[in-house]
Amino acid sequence: MITAEQKPLQEIFGYIAPYEKILVVGCNECVTVCAAGGRKEVGLLSSALRLHSVKAGKKLEVLEHTLERQCDPEYVDQLKELAGQVDAIVSLACGCGIQTVAAQYAIPVFPGVNTKFMGASESQGIWAERCMGCGDCMLGVTGGICPVARCSKSLMNGPCGGNSSGKCEISEDVDCAWQLIWNRLVELGIQDRYEELVAAKDWRPAGGGGPRKIIREDLAASKIITEDMA
């Protein structure tokens, strides 16, 4: 999932300072799971904004709403009525959701979270990066452990000299991805794969070729047909 963390309150206060009525919008997807922008966090942030306005002696009305998903225009349409009542929106969705809202409404839309990375939960309250969306998944040859996301240098052919007792030189808390890969290959009895050299990675599908887009002709075509029928 996409992970995020709430922005510092002071930054959010700064964004909304000129406005008297705002809408805080959450998303029921990834940011709910990583406890950054779901219904509960919308409530907490809204409450904090109200308490801050009271302390500052400032007039502020805060509306709250949480969408099923903020990165689909169909769901964001549901904000139409609320968006018409406010001066600005604070979105607690990931960057995708924030941009979808901003694209649909002609009022200022501010981020309430910092979108971090695509990660998995290690245990309750702890998420760690697992994927960088390189567009050409190589987990099939690395024992299910991603060197792109988990090696600090995204090395393709084994560890660098910074591996110390299985830890990365950047921190004792970071496992060397290539140590993990080697251990996994040994566990699976396929360590001979380690000797197969991986060619220099083409980073164009990873974003090096500009903003990426997926067009599923079958799905996009059926939408066109549906619209034509309507």
Partner: peptide, 11 residues
């Protein structure tokens, strides 16, 4: 008792 309950009481 969630954080929101404490905030709402203060609010």
């Amino acid at each position: 008792v969630d954080a929101i309950h404490l905030m709402k009481a203060l609010e």
